[in-house]
Design a protein around this nucleic acid. Structure first.
Lengths: 194, 194
DNA sequence: TTAATTTCTTCAACTACTTTAATTTTTTAG
DNA sequence: CTAAAAAATTAAAGTAGTTGAAGAAATTAA
């Protein structure tokens, strides 16, 4: 199987491409493996790529003054990750991205992306829909962080990403949900006793 | 001044339009006034429009089981508001949108938007950039809701939207920042005493 | 396989923030 | 301009979630 199979499937859901457009697109992609614990981006770096995950799992996070980790997103197969702001403006990133499992990525640099928009404008549509959906998901998450208790956030996480909990250490789940690992452990006990 | 002046300026920052494209676009817009306290959307409604604010101020919020208001976003001049998920899927909305001041809007329905994408595909680019920027802003807000204290969130709000605090009741600011109005009042006192 | 490291759990002390309720100030409406 | 309603302040009691510390369990590495 071609390593861009998954990505092409995702694209085909939203736009139709001619074979030559597929070939051009594929020629722009750069394949990269990221072993577990390796960094894709560190605070202070400039984010040079948009990254599509074809296998594995990454987290994107910040570290505060007291050394705590706060996870802004997990990325698994079929997701895009990058610090978009740094990527688009060339500014230094506040974020870290590293691999929680051995991971395989397809990368697009900014110049390549711009070439792509120019040569195949249909990709404007593809990314418009991609960001539109990402925006909706984030708006929902913001709403829940305002209106849900820690327990509700955890239960919703289980429902929304049923497979993810097995793959990710519990303390990372806590750092994603905005609670301490100790409290998440307590929550889980309380829930299991019902 | 034409009532679509502001919107056309925003668009011109990202794409170039021919006069006939401008005219076609303008012909799709529907002007609407929303008096203070009037609803643009209620929970249970289907969101039928994307709304560009040319004057005034709105809030988008949910109400939880205990009757509390949680504000997901404010919108002022130059911002788009809608429940995108409901708008795109036709599902019932969880959100309320109402006006905090007398407000004027330009509205686009889904059919009109689809016509627009078809006749002037450059708008794919415009909305791609719009959602891309909105995504970045939201990602930042999620990160801050995870890693900032209530005080840091308030100070950042003041810095990011210096003009907004004058226009919006303090309790709404609290509902936006994810703290109780009582606590925000305490915070402000503490800060002013330094 | 074992040692080393990381993660998870449990408990108790603590704190950032909420809740309730009473008073004052500001805004709105007639 | 005045009355009524809404918003902001203050104080006190309460609670959801944190912190720190110590042991148990699981994972990693050699």
């Amino acid at each position: 199987m071609r390593n861009d199979e998954l990505l092409l499937q995702h694209i085909a859901r939203h736009i139709h491409l001619e074979q030559e457009e597929v070939d051009f697109f594929s020629s722009l992609l750069h394949f990269k493996t990221l072993p577990k614990k390796a960094f894709l981006l560190r605070q202070g770096d400039i984010c040079k790529t948009e990254n599509f995950i074809i296998r594995g799992c990454v987290r994107m996070y910040t570290i505060d003054d007291t050394g705590f980790v706060h996870i802004v997103m997990f990325g698994v197969e079929g997701w895009w990750v990058s610090d978009l702001f740094s990527f688009l403006t060339g500014s230094y990133s506040d974020y870290y991205i590293d691999a929680l499992e051995d991971t395989e990525l397809l990368q697009l640099s900014r110049e390549q992306l711009e070439q792509l928009y120019e040569r195949v404008p249909k990709f404007e549509r593809f990314f418009r829909i991609l960001f539109q959906n990402a925006f909706i998901a984030q708006q929902n998450r913001i709403n829940q962080s305002l209106s849900f208790t820690a327990e509700q956030r955890y239960l919703d996480f289980l429902k929304k990403y049923p497979q993810l909990e097995q793959r990710i250490p519990q303390k990372q789940v806590a750092a994603f949900l905005g609670m301490s690992p100790v409290f998440l452990s307590m929550l889980r006990k309380r829930l299991s006793q019902r």
